[in-house]
Design a protein around this nucleic acid. Structure first.
Length: 365
DNA sequence: GACACGTGGTA
DNA sequence: TTACCAAGTGT
């Protein structure tokens, strides 16, 4: 045991001991030091809750068990497996990263945070997590958990919305690291940072009475630990209405189909498959009215994104001669599309709100 | 440096 | 309803 903390009051020692006794263990990505699995889990967990990833991680891994398999997979299949997880640039970067690891690193992930960080989709925190877990590098992650824990322990008064504060927090995080840790120590320390933030030092109602840091925590001493972290910048969402043109048809074997187009390479749901979207009401009504059928307007569905509050208005168009629409659809901006069987949608990378929506449509079709 | 990028859960 | 935010990164 050589992990005496050098930071405030033996922070690292307290954290490592606490993690081994009370931290989380048994999560599917914890039982390994395989950089591929650790990397995959870290990317999936970016801004995403553990409970959500529990569902996606094993499915993705069973289809792509190695970085070679992933590198050789099709981008459409990767997107389909990511469908519903959100932040789809992660999936595109993941795929690109796998191809780079195979083509430029002989299929082995680089073994330092510095080198890992040059790969697409791997930033400072993810690079540190992989390096710490897989290679025992003495470097700190800096995610939301760590920021909350550190700002509370230190009663850090800086505004974490500012870049200067981020830099200061990064230095602070490095200063708390254990001294000359073993690889096991770095694993427990890194996991401990996240476990502490997730299970005790929560945003509201932190469990200070059970916290190993309580004796050294200035936030707790202040009586208002939840005052930290201090954030000035507020998120604002703007409201928008989108009309989803749900063209229904049938294939040669009598299966119900829907017309899907690939979303543009940038912006919301980039690269996913979706019904044609019209963002202007007049244009939507004009276009949908011009199609030779009776549009059926369904109840709008609310869907919120980070910066937008969407009202999705499905407009179902059924046809006796659906192929007529295919020609019309391809003329539309953004336009390359195809008819997809409603019972085959699981194999497609769709935006999350489309699955229940199309399932409803299918049920009434 | 500010902003875009998804989704589901919680207060 | 609204706001916040969860194992952040890229532009």
């Amino acid at each position: 045991m050589s992990a005496g903390g050098v930071g405030v009051g033996g922070f690292a020692r307290l954290l490592i001991d606490w993690q081994r006794l009370h931290g989380r263990s048994g999560l599917p990505w914890q039982a390994t030091r395989d950089p591929y699995r650790v990397w995959l889990s870290e990317v999936m967990l970016q801004q995403t809750q553990v409970s959500t990833v529990l569902d996606y991680f094993p499915r993705f891994l069973s289809r792509f068990p190695t970085v070679h398999a992933l590198a050789e997979g099709s981008s459409d299949e990767v997107m389909a497996l990511w469908s519903g997880l959100g932040y789809y640039s992660r999936a595109r970067n993941l795929h690109r990263c796998a191809q780079i690891v195979v083509s430029e690193h002989g299929g082995e992930f680089p073994n330092s945070a510095l080198a890992l960080q040059t790969l697409p989709g791997i930033g400072v925190s993810t690079a540190a997590a992989i390096a710490a877990f897989c290679f025992g590098e003495c470097i700190s992650i800096l995610d939301g958990n760590v920021k909350r824990v550190l700002t509370r322990v230190m009663a850090y008064e800086g505004d974490v919305s500012l870049a200067a504060s981020q830099k200061e927090l990064w230095h602070l995080a490095q200063s708390m690291l254990p001294h000359a840790p073993s690889i096991d120590d770095m694993g427990a320390y890194t996991q401990g940072l996240m476990d502490l933030g997730a299970t005790l030092c929560m945003r509201s109602k932190p469990a200070c009475d059970r916290c190993p840091m309580q004796p050294i925590c200035h936030g707790h001493a202040s009586g208002e630990p939840t005052r930290f972290p201090i954030k000035s910048r507020r998120l604002k969402r703007r409201h928008e209405s989108w009309w989803l043109a749900v063209f229904l048809g049938q294939d040669g074997e009598g299966h119900s189909t829907v017309w899907l187009e690939r979303r543009p390479a940038k912006g919301i749901w980039a690269g996913l498959h979706c019904t044609p979207v019209l963002t202007d009401e007049d244009a939507a009504l004009a276009l949908l009215g011009a199609e030779n059928a009776t549009p059926q307007f369904l109840e709008p569905v609310a869907h919120s994104l980070t910066h937008r509050e969407l009202r999705l208005h499905p407009v179902v168009m059924r046809s006796v001669a659906p192929m007529v629409w295919a020609a019309a659809c391809t003329e539309r901006p953004g336009g390359v599309g195809q008819w997809v069987r409603l019972d085959d949608l699981a194999a497609w990378g769709l935006p999350a709100p489309l699955r229940p929506l199309l399932a409803r449509v299918a049920a009434s079709a």
